[in-house]
């Protein structure tokens, strides 16, 4: 498999009135063609900022990508001209956003919004574009697609809107789709349906996928590999399988205990991680997780751990070995 995306030492900061927010702090990871990567972490840990940074969609001010490289299909997206990055967005790399209700233009028909990526990136006639959109709408199981094309977002249900968003992300047959918590706002059965659908479609087209979520259960089921983020950094990086079987970072272990697992007795009590996610402006010293960590040692208070390899497909950023 060839490398599709490589993120190197990416940092994105927000310069707010209250202080500097290092929303993404020196992270590196890579992704192969057709692979699915899960990005997990509590809300506010920098998952969305990470995703938006790839496509340079960070609002500036107050945000800015301060360093790093995003190598996608052999070019560094961070140094491309505005015109060139526009040619990538929605075409080679597409994004599916979290809130379908607010992420679609309320005064534009679904059809027009759906056709837009192809109007921008493809030299096709209106008829051809329309045909492909109708086809896609059918593939995402939207009934009565032709009439739905002329409807406005407020006439759709949340689940339908998210389906339309997924279709929109796939119209140009991108190499990478980033789905930012695509199902959080929806109820559980629809969530599962949509994820299956997305998985099927990306598999069919050989599209790589980054699924952002705070639900490890979803990751375990749909992702090949996983990055666990905490306070702007990646604290554990592994294959999904290995992570699920042998979580090595105390934070990941905490996360696992706090989400329902499919292979466990449903009656087992869930245990949320104690304490609050940190305030990114006033980060704790040393390892950001130490105030909430039950494994902490003296060193955690003073030194920030870097990612280190623990076995061939598993890296963690932690001073202690939780297995001992």
């Amino acid at each position: 498999m060839s490398k599709l995306l490589e993120v190197k030492n990416l940092s994105t900061h927000f310069f707010t009135d209250d202080g500097l927010v290092k929303a993404v702090d020196n992270i590196s990871y890579s992704l192969n063609e057709g692979e699915t990567l899960g990005l997990v972490g509590e809300s506010g840990c920098g998952k969305s900022v990470n995703a938006l940074s790839l496509l340079r969609l960070i609002p500036n001010p107050p945000g800015k990508i301060v360093s790093g490289k995003v190598i996608f299909e052999d070019q560094n997206l961070l140094t491309l001209s505005e015109d060139d990055i526009c040619r990538i967005r929605g075409n080679r790399m597409a994004m599916i956003f979290q809130e379908p209700m607010t992420s679609l233009n309320p005064v534009m028909t679904i059809g027009r919004q759906l056709m837009e990526p192809m109007e921008i990136h493809r030299q096709m006639t209106r008829g051809e574009i329309q045909e492909r959109c109708l086809d896609l709408l059918k593939r995402v199981h939207i009934p009565e697609a032709p009439t739905r094309m002329n409807a406005y977002p407020h006439q759709f249900s949340g689940g339908m809107l998210q389906r339309a968003m997924i279709a929109m992300g796939l119209t140009c047959n991108p190499r990478l789709v980033i789905a930012d918590e695509p199902t959080t706002a929806l109820d559980v059965t629809i969530q599962a349906q949509l994820l299956e659908l997305m998985k099927d479609l990306t598999r069919e087209f050989g599209t790589a996928l980054i699924i952002i979520t705070h639900n490890l259960g979803i990751v375990a089921r749909y992702a090949d590999r996983v990055n666990v983020m905490y306070a702007g950094r990646i604290v554990e990086k592994s294959t999904a399988m290995d992570l699920y079987k042998n979580p090595r970072h105390p934070y990941t272990i905490g996360l696992m205990a706090s989400v329902p697992r499919l292979d466990q007795d449903m009656k087992k009590k869930l245990k949320p991680i104690e304490g609050q996610p940190p305030d990114l402006i006033h980060l704790p010293s040393g390892c950001s997780f130490h105030p909430r960590c039950s494994y902490r040692v003296e060193r955690c208070l003073n030194e920030t751990p870097e990612l280190k390899t623990v076995n061939e497909n598993h890296e963690i950023a932690c001073w202690v070995d939780v297995r001992t």
Binding site: L52, L55, L57, P59, E82, D83, C86, R87, I88, R89, G90, N91, A94, M95, F97, E99, T102, S103, L104, N105, P106, E116, P117, I120, H121, M168
Partner: peptide, 17 residues
């Protein structure tokens, strides 16, 4: 500042469009 503007940008629309 709204989300759908971000969506429009993410599609590859240039600023003016």
């Amino acid at each position: 500042g709204q989300d759908f503007i971000r969506t429009a940008r993410a599609k590859g629309l240039r600023e003016k469009a």
